[in-house]
Nucleic acid binder design. Structure first.
Lengths: 332, 332
DNA sequence: TTGTATGCGTTATCAT
DNA sequence: ATGATAACGCATACAA
């Protein structure tokens, strides 16, 4: 007898179990099937080591149980955390994830969206930068950290509250002249609100403040020059600095160290994101921590909920302050 | 006329172009088709905005142009770099990537492999820890950093050479009593060779050395105690330390700082991996840098090459030393 | 409840 | 070179 070399199909299982192919299908789709039949089918399936063919299933049903996740890269730790958390959340719901690293590139973002539609994904979650991204009709899209259009739900931290919290924390730690440093895409996006929240709270508290904002294409050396221009006789004008990300905060701390300014003795610094050098334990710096797991879970939930359910244009998730050695400890 | 609501298929394109469906297929597969026909087909396809259905294609051809990538997470920066580089390499070859974050969990690793076979991926690339991982027949697998079995190709840095290089570098930087610190899975894997290379070079150079090796389940506090036991009167026994990863090096630097030991003044430290705090620029610490892009490219190339081509059981890629502030600069 | 038959969109084998 | 047609493996409407 010729050895069967192909993978077993439902037909094989049906024959083995002595039932009809439709019955097998029903068993695997959790539909009503007589107990005896079900038992026979399951036994036959196990015997043949039958696995359903998701491609045939996808072709037939139009549902693929997969989504595409767009992110610039997974090297930046915030992106890395987001990617892992989205992956976990999807797995919990039985979905697979196509990872799409866009490298901040407009055309790659667009290409991946095309790829996603070719592959009949059930949805897309994206942290994108292309201001004129074209999103195909009929394919659900959830944006993270960017408001793309009113019809596309955006999930983000409560960045405004984070800015307020940063200002409050510096104020409570004794700061009286602070500054805000930001680098980022020129595209208006959620993280912009960190500035607004910070600024408004400074005004509310009567806290003296300055700002230096550059876009992504500008050398960070501009920050270095800016800081140096505020340093004289080994002393810095500010007693508190709020950086738009932890990554920037680290850079700034480095710059200050080069000029002999110490953190937090001479100037206290707060970052944003909540990155950590090791997998557990302490933060890189004192920071406004984003609940990345909540962002991921919310994005997935919104994406997968019935399309006729109303989807909010913006969902803001809570942030909290965490001490990380770059603010004065005595205040906490 | 009723608006067509469904996605256009080859049949629609064939009708629109006035040709047979087989001809359309040939056009999209680059087979020989008369110039005139080809032109008509392409025009019709563009007019209808036709996109090939990869699920039907996968069902028919058995090839899905997708692979699964298994990694514990994308938070650890080395994993994050690897993920991004593999993603890029796959894209270059026209392949899609299912990301599978396993969280170091044996059963999740196995689950994802099952998922991958269900989804008829054309192959799997994995950085796994499960010592008794069952890999299905007929699905190509490339392992990164772990030797799973002689029949499964493994791609890794030349870890042994990296260990040698670390010892040489410390020696050349003036160290005469060094130590090696390692944490890791008990599973024997490629990074173990960092120790062997280091040890052998120490012996060759007549360099006095000690080692402290713990497994993943042990608290890193053990390192702290170990280091403290080698410190007396504010001085440390060693003048050089080689840590098995940059992450561990950072932790160790922190520990030493707490005891008043300065890096690199009192003790020079070399890590392994080549992690960076910002997307460009400097390293976290002096380190043996892995060519993550080369590892990724090699893994993808091996995976996609003809299955009848001989695949080597182990491919080692070059490493290099990079200065990162935790060794004495004068020596470079 | 269970079986039968059709079609999802594509590829490949035939004739033409 | 081109057109017609039969699978690929599954889901489902319909018949039994």
């Amino acid at each position: 007898m010729a050895r069967k070399t192909t993978v077993p199909t439902m037909k094989d299982v049906a024959e083995e179990a002595g039932v009809a192919i439709g019955t097998v299908s029903k068993v695997f789709n959790g539909q009503n099937v007589g107990t005896e039949y079900k038992k026979k089918v399951l036994a036959a399936a196990k015997k043949l080591d039958y696995k359903i063919n998701t491609y045939a299933q996808g072709l037939k049903s139009g549902k693929t149980k997969s989504i595409a996740f767009l992110v610039p890269n997974t090297i930046n730790q915030y992106f890395g955390m987001l990617t892992t958390e989205v992956n976990k959340a999807l797995k919990k719901h039985g979905y697979k994830m196509f990872l799409c690293c866009t490298d901040y590139d407009d055309s790659q973002e667009q290409e991946f969206i095309t790829m996603a539609s070719l592959n009949k994904v059930d949805g897309i979650i994206g942290l994108t930068y292309n201001p004129k991204l074209v999103i195909e009709e009929g394919i659900p899209f959830i944006s993270i950290d960017r408001i793309i259009s009113p019809s596309i739900p955006c999930v983000a931290s409560d960045n405004y509250a984070g800015g307020v919290l940063a200002a409050q924390t510096l104020y409570n730690a004794g700061c009286r002249k602070v500054c805000f440093l930001r680098t980022g895409s020129t595209l208006s996006n959620e993280p912009d609100k960190r500035k607004s929240g910070f600024e408004n709270e400074c005004i509310a508290k009567g806290l003296d403040y300055d700002m230096k904002i550059i876009d992504d294409s500008t050398s960070h050396n501009v920050f270095f020059e800016y800081l140096k221009s505020h340093i004289s006789n080994g002393k810095i004008d500010f007693d508190g600095i709020f950086c738009v990300t932890d990554t920037l905060a680290l850079e700034v701390i480095d710059m200050l160290k080069q000029t002999g300014i110490k953190t937090p003795e001479d100037v206290q610094i707060i970052g944003f994101d909540g990155l950590k050098p090791y997998e557990k334990d302490e933060y890189f710096c004192s920071t406004i921590v984003q609940s990345v797991d909540q962002i991921a879970e919310m994005a997935v939930t919104l994406l997968l909920q019935d399309s006729d359910t109303m989807k909010p244009p913006l969902v803001c998730l809570p942030v909290k302050f965490a001490y990380g050695g770059t603010t004065k400890k005595s205040f906490f």
